[in-house]
Design a protein around this nucleic acid. Structure first.
Lengths: 231, 231
DNA sequence: TCACCTATTCATCGAACGTTGAATTGACAT
DNA sequence: ATGTCAATTCAACGTTCGATGAATAGGTGA
């Protein structure tokens, strides 16, 4: 009974790991099942046997880490609410609870997580299935964060709140892609891989945006200065 | 001489249009050259003849609209600088000059532009070639905008500036993808396709972020409240 | 009219694709 | 030892892929 289960082999995990890495690098259609099997050092038929068709393999990869991730994010959110009680938590603290578990894992918990987030970044920007899959796996947690933000930003307009989250999601997503573009642009001063530098800046950046958009209800200066110019 | 050139047929354009639409929907590897040729109602060999290999086709699609886009954006930037002179322009005005030509074309100038921006969104988040291609086609313009932002935010830390632009780029990029995720999340209150609603909000949101991150140099409250907590 | 050049079609190449049925292995319970 | 069932291998299915060489069509200038 001390012996670990050896009956259920680890080949399914190997397949998921290889798929994660390759899907992250080349996208769903950019990798073949045979290539994944080769990378996992596994017969190609085992992919169908253990996971299913190619689309199911992709979803399995996406789901595997989403669960523990969502768990941790909800825990951090509850903690930050409890810490601030009976006051509502600050916008900064909420955004930190939202982003920290992601950025921290990506920098400190191995290649797998980096690949995973790169995969999520591509899926999130893919109109073919991105909206559906991301909604399915992450929106339940997002709704909880929006609830917290409503506490911190009372009487906030609902549309402003959703769009502000959308902007935060976009900034976070592009960060995960780690395309190296900012490395070029900044001449090496900033590095795509330096997610600590991102975290340090994304929280105040997004918090300022939320406050500006959702905070005040006098309309003065809130909207775009030249909105109706169709030029 | 009044007759338009008919010798150079329009089949190359038809190929680029079909490629634009299909690449936007399914990504580079998700579409076959044969599928593009079929959609363009053109023999498959004509794709090679007029454009070249598949990768060259993708770049041709990307390049085609980038040129006129960059031209317009630089013009708007110069205008907004001239309007404010001798004062530096506001951060809001600069960001508006950066985003307006994109969002406005996407909403008001036909399906082709919407597809194009969706394509850009996917390329920008693709680690395989995204960083390189985006840098090549858009970074020259971006550098000009960063120059203007340095005028509006004197003594701004360079890294803060680059990262702030990165966040703006991510927010803009996810908007272009139009995945429908925010439609689900908001229960139909917000629509991915409503880029006017985005523009109205993205400018103040990002401007507030830039000012918070790049504006003040007293360190109080600027950084993330819990930066070094490795969870 | 004829030669020329571009544009277009046709047919086909070898390779790789996703998936599956049938056969083989290996450990465990009876 | 024998039967059982999950895990694994092997071989092959029909399809589609990206690319190209050879043949054809069609307008233009000589």
């Amino acid at each position: 009974m001390a012996a670990p289960r050896k009956t259920r082999s680890n080949k399914r995990e190997r397949i998921l790991n290889a798929a994660e890495r390759l899907f992250a690098k080349k996208g769903f259609h950019g990798v073949s099942v045979r290539e994944i099997a080769r990378a996992a050092r596994v017969d190609v038929a085992l992919v169908s046997y253990h996971v299913g068709k190619k689309a199911e393999l992709f979803e399995a990869v996406l789901l595997r880490r989403a669960e523990m991730l969502n768990e941790e994010r909800l825990q951090m959110l509850e903690d930050c609410i409890a810490d601030a009680a009976p006051e509502p938590p600050s916008v900064e603290a909420i955004i930190d609870a939202f982003t920290h578990p992601l950025l921290n894992r990506s920098t400190r918990e191995g290649r797998g997580w980096k690949d995973y987030f790169s995969l999520v970044a591509q899926a999130n920007n893919n109109p073919e299935m991105g909206g559906v899959l991301m909604s399915r796996y992450f929106d339940p947690v997002v709704r909880r964060f929006l609830d917290a933000l409503r506490m911190a930003l009372p009487d906030c307009d609902e549309r402003d709140l959703f769009w502000s989250y959308h902007f935060l999601s976009g900034a976070l997503t592009l960060t995960f892609a780690e395309t190296g573009r900012i490395d070029n642009l900044s001449g090496g001063l900033c590095l795509s891989s330096d997610l600590d530098a991102v975290h340090e800046r994304l929280v105040p950046f997004a918090a300022a945006g939320f406050k500006r958009l959702c905070g005040l209800h006098d309309s003065a200066g809130r909207r775009n200065p030249t909105p109706a110019k169709n030029r």
